[in-house]
Each structure stands twice: as C-alpha cells, then as structure tokens.
Design a protein around this nucleic acid. Structure first.
Lengths: 151, 151
DNA sequence: TATTGTTATACTCTATAACTATA
DNA sequence: TATAGTTATAGAGTATAACAATA
C-alpha cells in the first residue's frame, strides 16, 4: 500500500505548480496593486494577526529571516507596512499593516479571487465541494509540517 | 450563487502557495540533484514529449521565451539537455533530454514523491481519493486556461 | 515582413555568512 | 553567550525591449 499516497503525490506535483503560476500571474496582473505572492501573504498575515514581528512572518512563510527582511523592506518602502522597534524587547521589530496596506491587500485578494472563481465556474457544485474539502485536509497536514507560529 | 466558487477560490489561494513552497523546498533539498521547479518541469516535459523546441517548453510552462531560454541555459550547462538547431527550420532549436537528465529527473521525482507521500500518509483512503479527483478536475480547468501546446 | 530564439537589463525571491544591537 | 534583525553577496526566476538569423 502507500500506493494511493504515491499516486496522490504525483497529482499534486503536476497540478499545484500550474495553479501556483496562475495565482502569481493573477496577483501581478493588476498593476496598480502589483503584489508578489510572498508580499501578499505577508500583508495578509500581518493584518490577520493584528501585528507581528519579523520572526513571526518568517515562520509563517517558512522563509529565513534575511529573505523575510527583504520582502518587508519592499512593503515598508511602499508604506504598506510600518516597522517599529518593540518597546518591550528592543531587539524585536513590530510590524503593522497601514491603511493603504489594508486597501491594497483587500484589492489584490478580491481580484485574485475573481480570476480563480471565473475558472472554477466551469465546475459543478459537487466538484467545488470536493475541492474545498480537499484543500482543508491538505492545509491541515501541510501546515502541521511547514513550521508555523505567530509570535 | 457563484458563492461556492468564491469560497473555493479563497481555499486555493490559501493552500496552494503552502504546498508549492513545500514542493520547491523538497526539490531543492536533494542537493546532488538540485533542480528548481521550472527546471524539473522542463526536463519532465522534454522527456515526455520525446523532444520539443524552446517555444514548446515556453508554452507548456506558461513563460515568455526569454525566461524559458534562461532555464534551458542552466539545464544545457549541466548537460541535462541538448540543444540543436532544427534541420527542417533553422530558426528552431530541438531540445532533447540526455541520459544524465533522465536519471536526474527520475531521482528528483522519486524523492519529491517520497516527501509528499510521507505527509499524505496521515490522511485516510477516502480523503486521498477525494484529493486525487479534485486534482484531476483542477488540472482540466487550469490547463484549459493556461495556454498549452506541444509544438 | 513575420517567426524563433537570444542577449541586455532590471527586479524579486531565496539562501548562507557575517555583522550589529540587545538581552 | 544567545537572540532578533540587518547587510553583503550570490544564483535563479521572471519580465520587457532590442536584436540576429531564418523563413
């Protein structure tokens, strides 16, 4: 056995990169927004947590601190995020999404959802339901694996 | 209506990047092989088609010719692929996977499958079946969308 | 003139190594 | 001494624009 895992793995390896590329392109298409996927995820995480640190973002994204730092650099330069020394521990940096950041991430989310939904519209309700259940199952196992923490 | 598409889109937008990152990391982990995802996909496509052209790969990956050219540069430098002027149309370049390329892509595929399958092993048979069906449905709609052609 | 591929240039992602400031 | 973050450096992905060779 473990044969079904094997076949399932093959499907994921074929299909996930295709959808990932679609998302990336869609995210980039709306030029006024112009977010990359990690930038989008960083903004969304910072908003969802109501503020975090660089280390928190790094763990969420599964990236090293230097990589994360550069992504945050870009967001801070565009004033989508603020970066302030933590008063409790001066080594830490508190990240907060700005009002503009909130608007941009909401717009990017809406536009990307629209692009995805338009493709999904050719599937019937049963298939959509199945995909949602699959995504929930995958999220659980992959998030359990891909270190995570909110600091 | 269109509400289920919308929720399904949201799930995809959350979960796909996580799995994509896992695949990328897994692909890179086995350093002897050291393939990136587009390199892997290029090799796999070249092998599957029994030979293709640069334009063929570009369409398959959904990338521009210059981007594709650079990816092929890297593969050719490592002698995983050969690049020869087409005898019928001298503008075209025929790509062929080499023996070493075949070995490398097979190893990368096996290792990545192993990594994915080990995570999937915590899911039961019913869930795995559902994921496979979902992936097949998604592949159909996204490949229909993401231009494709084999030259 | 249109097509195929390449080169030039530029930006982002991502990593490792080395460094600064703070605890 | 250990931790949080940054800077330096480097390789790969990706795009647009400009170009060469061929049809």
């Amino acid at each position: 056995m473990a044969q079904k895992e094997e076949r399932c793995a093959r499907e994921l390896l074929e299909v996930v990169p295709i959808i990932a590329r679609f998302i990336r392109t869609e995210m980039r298409r709306h030029r006024a927004l112009g977010l990359t996927v990690p930038q989008f995820r960083t903004l969304a995480f910072t908003e969802r947590t109501g503020g975090t640190t660089l280390g928190g973002v790094a763990e969420h994204l599964g990236l090293t601190p230097p990589s994360t730092c550069k992504i945050v650099d870009g967001l801070a330069a565009r004033e989508l995020i603020t970066r302030l020394q933590s008063p409790r521990d001066h080594r830490k940096v508190n990240l907060q999404i700005t009002a503009v950041g909130k608007r941009v991430v909401a717009d990017a989310r809406r536009e990307t959802h629209k692009g995805l939904a338009s493709i999904l519209s050719s599937l019937d309700q049963r298939e959509l339901e199945r995909i949602m259940q699959s995504m929930r199952a995958l999220r659980m196992v992959f998030i359990g694996e891909t270190v995570h923490a909110n600091t």
